[in-house]
Amino acid sequence: MFDFSKNYFELFGLPVGFRLDTAQLAARYRELQKVVHPDRFAAADAGSQRLSLQGATLVNEAFATLKDPLKRAQYLLALRGVEQDPQKSTLNDPAFLMQQMELREALAAVSSAQDPRARLDALLDEIGGMIKHQLARLAVQLEDGGADQLAAAAETIQKMQFLNKLHAQAEAIEADLEEAI
């Protein structure tokens, strides 16, 4: 059916890199889905059915990884042999962490603001801007590909994880506010 040893980029026929054409990714995803869809193997032997299921799972995993900038960056680092220990690593950047703490406090205070909606929008803008900034850095660091830059990319990825958490929290508060109206 297809080669299970290919990496996700090769599987989708895309160049290995952080910058990626999302329209092309989506188009290739639809094509691959058709090739491996288990419905096409309904009448086939058990071996082919199993392979098609494995293929469909792989295609879905690959798509989910490549589509999400953070997951794509983590995958690229792994491809380039940079180890990331998800459990142990503590970010060593007090200034960044202090800012995270302040933003968490600001989010917690949204509901008691004079205009909670406006306050939340301002915070969402700020967090969105920070995410964009880190993504731009990540693109440069991964493009460069030198050992120093890859190490820096690993740290940027950690910052992205904090920012995504923050953004999810802001969205949860947004949902609460809308419910209250």
Binding site: Q87, L91, P94, L97, M98, M101, Q161, F162
Partner: peptide
């Protein structure tokens, strides 16, 4: 002391 765990996004002061 400011620390944070990227995996879960926890921050501790």
């Amino acid at each position: 002391g400011m620390v944070g765990a990227p995996a879960c996004g926890d921050v501790m002061r």
